[in-house]
Amino acid sequence: MARIVGGFVAPHNPVMYFNPEGASKQQSDACYAAYGIMADRIKELEVDAAIVIGCDHYILFGTECLPPYVISTGEIEGPVDQLPGLKRKPLASHGALGEHIAKVGRETGFDWTVGRALNVDHSVAVPHHLMLEPTGKDIPIVAVMLACGVDPYLPMKRAWDLGEHIAEAVASFPGDERVVVIGSGGISHHVGDERMGEVNPAFDRKVLDIVARGDKAAMLALTDEEILRDGGNGAMEIRTYACAMAATRAAGGRVIGYEPVAGWVTGMGFAELEVAA
């Protein structure tokens, strides 16, 4: 049976691409080094597939239909929001694993919206570019998109439950794939509002501490009001962290790096998640 062998949380900051000089060389080097460490770990884990948990930025899904959570079950292409050095292209997809998770979900109370030929944005393409491609293996992915950027937001508890469901579904997949999950998102950041550029290291470290402790209760205790106040609208993306933590059974982890990069408008946190036996 397939199994989840590792997990990570990491930012997907597009500003890194279109304004690389926004960070000091020291901060930029630290961030790219963190991505490199994670890529090395993924290679060491001999991974066969990755589940990348991202979130729409009002680029993929419009007012006509705003799904709470989406999973890829076929071809994947992206990012639709191309960046310098990151052009839109087909991404290797593990459609069978995505379809299996969706099927298990339909039978157990998780009515996934499925993308049979899914376009993704930078929230999936950036971790793919910086964490999976450097392994030198064309690791197929399952893309998961949570409603983190557009209301109605997926409740944190539902994101957690979704992660537990993913873990159970992967365990029943009829294959021997070694799978990693990646929770993709920045911590404090404000997207498009008057506080854009503010970063809150205290909030960022609080979130990373919760991740490192695998503290479900503390994660679920973060209210939307607190996140919006202390972390900004972009920080709603930490739902992807909750989902990844739950998918690895909240066994804790280690912080790989943290940089509050005002010029990149984001608290950039990186952590590896342990996987419960």
Binding site: H57, Y58, G149, V150, D151, V191, G192, D193, E194, M196, G197, N233
Partner: peptide
């Protein structure tokens, strides 16, 4: 949603600096 207002502004070729001034 300010993700949309920001993108709307930038797609017109307007500056990010002016956007922030207006938002503030």
């Amino acid at each position: 949603n300010t993700m949309l207002t920001w993108g709307f502004w930038l797609q017109a070729g307007k500056s990010n600096r002016d956007y922030l001034k207006i938002m503030k």
